[in-house]
Structures are given as C-alpha cells and as structure tokens.
Write a protein that binds this DNA or RNA. Structure first.
Lengths: 216, 216
DNA sequence: GCCTAACCTGAATGACCGTTCAAGAACCTC
DNA sequence: GAGGTTCTTGAACGGTCATTCAGGTTAGGC
C-alpha cells in the first residue's frame, strides 16, 4: 500500500522535476540555448522522458510556464502577507525587485519571457497573466493606502501602471548589470517614485519608520 | 574613372546592405531565429558573401550592432534638433517612444538586444552604449530646462534614470501589445511622470501649448 | 592586355539536436 | 501472478543549419 502510493506519485514527481529543470535551464541558457539534453541532465532523467511527458521541447517550455505562473503567484502572496500596512507593504515591494524571492527577483528569466512572448503564444499568455497579477497586487496595496488616507492618487490605475513599468525598466538594468545600477539603487529609485506618485508624506516615507533598522 | 569609383564602392555597399539585412532579419525573427540564408536573401546576395565579410553569423550580428548604434545616435540627434525649447523637446521625447523614427521606436528589436546582451559581450557593449547615449540626450534636455527655470529636480541624475527606465518599462508593454497599452497611452503615461518628476507647471505642461493641436 | 588580389557564388560538408522508436521496467488490476 | 498499461531508457534517424571550399568573376596596377 505504502509502496503503491509512492509508486503512483513517482511519475508525477518526475514530471515536475523536469518542469523545474526546464525553468532552471532556461534561466541559465535562455530559451534559445536550452536543449532537451540539458533539461534531461538537469532533471536526472533521459531525453526520452522529457518528450514522453511533454511531446516536444516547445511543449516542455509551455508546461513550465504554467508552473512558473503558479509559483510566482504563490510566492507573491506569501511575500506580501508577511508585512502589514500599506506603507510597509509598498516598501516591501520596492525591495522585492532587488532579489528577494527566487521567482520574483529573477529578472533575466523575465527578459527571456518577454522576448519569447513576441513570437510564442503560450509565453505571451503567461507573461500577460503574470503581469496582470503583479499589477493587481500592486493595485491592492495602493487601494489599501488610499483607503487608509496615507496615499493620494488622482488616477490609481495609471499610477500602478507607471510604477509597474518603472520596475520593469529598472529591472532591465539590474538584469544586465548596468554599471551604476545596484539592488540598493533599484530599491531607492523605485521607492522615490512611489513616494512622489502616491503623495506619501515624508513622515511615512522614511524606510526605517516601520521596518527594522536599515541602511540604504 | 567614374566606373572605377563606382566599382571601388560596390563591395562596401554590398557589405552595408548585408548589415542592414541582418538588422531587418533580427527584427523580424529575432537573434535566435535569424539564419545566414535569411540575411543573404534579404540582402540579395549569397550565404558565402555574408561569411566572407563577417566570418560568421555572430560576426554579422556584432557588426550590425555598430551600424545600429551609429544610426540610432544620428537619428536621435536629428530628431531632437527639430524641436526647440526644453518643454517641447521633452514632449517630443515622450512621443518618440510611440513609434516616431524607425530606430528609436523599434522596441521589439530593443528587447532582442537586451536578451542577447545577457550572454553576448558585443551586444552588452552596444546596449550599454546605446543606453548611455539615450540617457545623455535626456539629461541634456533636463539640464536645459533646469537652466531655463522651467524644470525643477533635486537629483537630476536620478530623475533621468527613472524617466529612462520608465520608458523602457512602458516599451515592453507596447512591444508585446499588452491589452490596454497604446502609443497614445504610452506617451501620456510617460509625460505625466515627467511632469511630476520635473515639477513642470501646468501652464507649460499642456501638450498643445507649444506643439500643434493634438488630441490624446 | 596580363596578373594578382579582392569579391562573389552556391554546392558540399559535417555537426548538432529534436524527435522517433524498439525494447524493457514498474506497477496496477483482476 | 498474468496481462496490460504506464513509464522510462538510450540508441538511431533525419533535418536543419553554419561553415568550408573549389571555382569563378571583376577590376586595378603595370
């Protein structure tokens, strides 16, 4: 019985292991450089199995995207639930981009996804969904702050769009290790914009005011 | 004599034609999908010649990047010189991203370059140089406005960084045809940020105040 | 008008890599 | 525990390129 249960799970576990391997390889080599063999080796199985489960390399890519989506969402939720109150949450978001959390902070993977989304429908859908969720989370924090009276925004939707886009733009420079861009700068540049955009008062805007002691 | 001059130029012209073809093909199919044959066909020559001039496909990519750089810079200069005064110039920049000018507005090509820059040194250098120039141009406009007293910025460098990054971030959505993102929205979202970031007074901030009649 | 060097071509080469396949292992059902 | 289904493997296949090459063409120097 125990053996049976274990066995029943094994194929499913293997499948997932392959999906994770796919993501890892894409992260490492990009979509363009990811080979079936790389994935098989990374997952500790054979090429054959990768194709057995997903039909083709493209199939493996597509399937790995939905895993990515799920994990991104889950991690985002977990991350934001750690912190309470609109200002600290927003600050937390500012710091999220700087590399907290493997899925969220993985900007190079994001770049890969964007480019793939130009020509691949699965990637396009995944990226769109990911982005929508991400903006939704940001929007939620903004609404909280608005309701609490600590944020002010005449057009919250536009503000969210801008803040999300700014983060992507800064992320490019972080991902490409632009000289002069660091995680610290990333956080502060974005935070300053958020303060400006949402009319956060200087009293609340100090990073140290609600978080632990921090030196940026 | 005339014949000689023409002949002397022919190989060089062909070379350049190949470089332009390379850019065109990358734009169309991406770096990952660009084949030597595609380039040869696009340029109206043979595969052999592409390799003869550039040694390898990667060589053709690299060489085409420097052409891209030059043309980008040239076009940027030309574009900005068309308009006089800091506010109209900044407004012009806001509209630049929305597709004016083939090199500047070509956001998909930009995405391709970013991803290639993750792993290719030539692309990395090209992208960095391109970005530096771009930020420099923006910085120049900002400084003009500061000197004229129509802009206010406590940290111009940071403002430029943010405005440049915001444009990249918005560009991603434009490039990927995100539902709800249009060239008009792109321009207005960026412009609003610029107004906020640079403390442009509402009197100056109205798009129509210095340009032709416009409805956004 | 030859000679040499630069240009140019497209067919041949060979490596790489996705996919197929034949065979076997594992395991569930009855 | 026999039969059948699901999983798993790795070798073999075949197609797709980048690159090489052998052989032209062109043109400028002499």
């Amino acid at each position: 019985m125990a053996k049976a249960a274990l066995a029943a799970k094994a194929p499913e576990e293997r499948r997932e292991r392959i999906l994770r391997a796919t993501i890892a390889v894409v992260r490492e080599r990009g979509f363009a450089g990811a080979r079936v063999t790389d994935i098989a080796v990374e997952a500790g199985t054979s090429q054959g199995l990768v194709l057995y489960h997903f039909g083709s390399l493209a199939g493996a890519f597509a399937a790995s995207l939905t895993l990515l989506e799920d994990e991104f969402y889950e991690e985002l939720e977990r991350n934001l639930s750690e912190v309470v109150g609109p200002v600290p949450r927003l600050r937390h978001i500012a710091e999220l981009g700087a590399g907290h959390g493997p899925a969220v902070g993985d900007w190079r993977l994001w770049l890969e996804l964007w480019v793939r989304a130009i020509r691949d429908d699965d990637a396009r859908a995944a990226r769109e969904s990911l982005d929508t969720r991400w903006r939704g989370a940001l929007r939620q924090v903004v609404d909280e702050g608005l309701a609490a009276g600590v944020f002010a925004a005449s057009d919250p939707k536009a503000s969210v769009l801008r803040l999300a886009a700014l983060m992507d733009g800064l992320a490019i420079q972080l991902a490409l290790a632009d000289p002069g861009m660091t995680t610290g700068k990333f956080t502060e540049l974005w935070w300053k914009s958020a303060v400006l955009e949402l009319g956060i008062s200087p009293v609340n805007a100090t990073p140290g005011s609600q978080g632990g002691p921090k030196k940026n």
